[in-house]
Write a protein that binds this DNA or RNA. Sequence first.
DNA 1: ACATTAATTATGT
DNA 2: ACATAATTAATGT
Length: 231
Amino acid sequence: MKKLDESLLLRLPPFSQLSRAQIRKILDQAQTKRLDEGGSFFSEGEEATRFYLLLDGHIRVIKTTPAGDQIIVLHIAAGQLFGIAAALGHSLYPATAQAAAESLALSWPMPLLQEFSAIYQGFATENYKVVGARMQEMQSRISEMATQQVEQRVATALLRLTNQAGRKTDEGIEIDFPITRQDISEMTGTTLHTVSRLLSGWEKQGIILSTRKRIVIVEAHQLVRISDNLT
DNA sequence: ACATTAATTATGT
DNA sequence: ACATAATTAATGT
């Protein structure tokens, strides 16, 4: 196991107020795990033994409905903790954490989550903020499903993705991990066909650019218009 | 307004 | 050459 640089954590919200010595101690208890695209850090229903911090890459959090279809609940960007929702309730992971791109994460035994919160000031509050924000996001998406139409939903989904994983290019803002139409359909509760039609339509209008597993938003304001519009 | 089915084409290893 | 992704049209609820 190689040495990890303390400056890695220093900039991240959960650790930003900690001293170098404190971070060193935390790092020494961490395990690193690297996954290729498609690999899982943990799966829904497993015993929640560890919590994670994503250093690089992107994670999609997947739930499987009783009917058997997959739903992408949310995405995790680098620098965020995940696998911590279970700590505030049950002992099983509520969802699967799958690498949307090659990803690198640190992990600690679950008991340390409480320990860190108790010892290091600011750690707990930061985590509650993160969990709270995610709960809100999930809730707002549930109400979206009920109220908005498909076209608006995938527009907002794209916008959310650019906010969480947007990378500026000369053409526009690219979603910087591989994403298929199937993925987007699982985020928005539609079919890949509908997503495909919408995206190719938008591409013809110059709102987006897309090749396989890659989407660039050219005119975000147009998506905003679609997302909160009455046809 | 959207899903489903199915057939066809494009794209990446 | 093969598997996976994307498009497109036709038909169904």
